[in-house]
């Protein structure tokens, strides 16, 4: 029953997408819109196929993917460590959190040129930019998560003579995990943006670099093909995070029976 409904939902979503694509294709042909303004979907697919077969798209995709994953890993790890420290020691929160928020309010795009000057045109600067963007959502969610443990649970552990560290390990950390995963999910999506922004500012490789190059050559279909690839990359990474989340925070109800009326 539910399977059937999911299938119906899926085919409706896909159907809508195809309809829009068809209308787009038709409009481009009927009104003879030049390809340097809006390329037809078939032209985009063609560019995507050519790019993949020639290996050009994939070479740049690997560069961007490496930047995204490295930046995400560094940013998330640093956010997690800082979040745990701040979550555990209230004193630290009063001390450094205002500075962290102040840093966060500076748009990362604005400091990207500085970072490129400091770390060069290679991959390092992109990794740093991506890491600074991925850092904050993980940090903020870790702090909130560590405070989310129900008072009852903490009290019960303490009643059985748990130490501060044991309360952290047995209750606070597991209770924080669902929040941390929300942070990781956001960070992952932002990491892709971070890498592209970094490549826009100054680079020698990567999908962002390729976009600028094709844009310069007025190869619109080629640019759209990259956008398609980027969105596939984002969806893939996001799905990976969700799968990981379902495994780690298995006790949070993802599937289960729906609440009637909710």
């Amino acid at each position: 029953m539910r399977r059937l409904k999911r299938f119906a939902d899926l085919s409706m979503t896909l159907g809508l997408g195809l309809l829009i694509l068809a209308a787009w294709e038709l409009a481009v042909r009927v009104f003879a819109i030049p390809a340097i303004i809006v390329p037809a979907p078939t032209a985009v697919l063609g560019a995507l196929r050519d790019g993949i077969l020639s290996g050009e798209l994939l070479t740049h995709l690997w560069v961007t993917l490496a930047e995204v994953l490295l930046g995400f890993a560094f940013g998330a790890a640093f956010g997690l460590v800082c979040g745990v420290m701040i979550g555990l020691f209230t004193l630290l929160e009063n001390l450094v959190y205002p500075y962290i928020v102040a840093f966060q309010t500076v748009p990362k795009v604005a400091i990207a040129p500085i970072i490129v000057i400091w770390f060069g045109y290679g991959m390092a600067s992109k990794v740093v930019i991506t890491a600074t963007i991925a850092f904050f959502p993980v940090l903020a969610n870790t702090i909130v998560g560590l405070r989310a443990a129900p008072r009852d649970q903490v009290e019960l552990m303490v009643a059985f003579t748990a130490s501060r560290w044991q309360v952290f390990r047995l209750v606070r950390w597991p209770q924080a995990l669902p929040f941390i995963f929300v942070g990781l999910e956001v960070a992952m999506v932002l990491a892709v943006i971070g890498a592209i922004v970094g490549e826009f500012v100054g680079s020698q490789a990567g999908l962002g670099y390729l976009i600028l190059q094709r844009d310069f050559n007025l190869d619109m279909a080629g640019v759209f093909a990259i956008l398609l690839l980027l969105s596939a990359l984002g969806i893939g990474l996001h799905a990976l995070m969700m799968a990981l989340q379902r495994r780690v925070v298995f006790w949070v109800d993802h599937r289960g029976d729906r609440v009637v009326g909710a």
């Binding site: 009852d152 649970q153 009290e155 009643a159 059985f160």
Partner: peptide
């Protein structure tokens, strides 16, 4: 040994693992 008004079990632990919590703590 204490029992609170609410059960207060850890949702990521099985019944058996929940019973063992005081043993682990101590």
């Amino acid at each position: 040994g204490v029992v609170f008004q609410a059960p207060v079990l850890l949702p990521w632990r099985t019944a058996l693992e929940n019973v063992l919590v005081p043993i682990e703590i101590q």
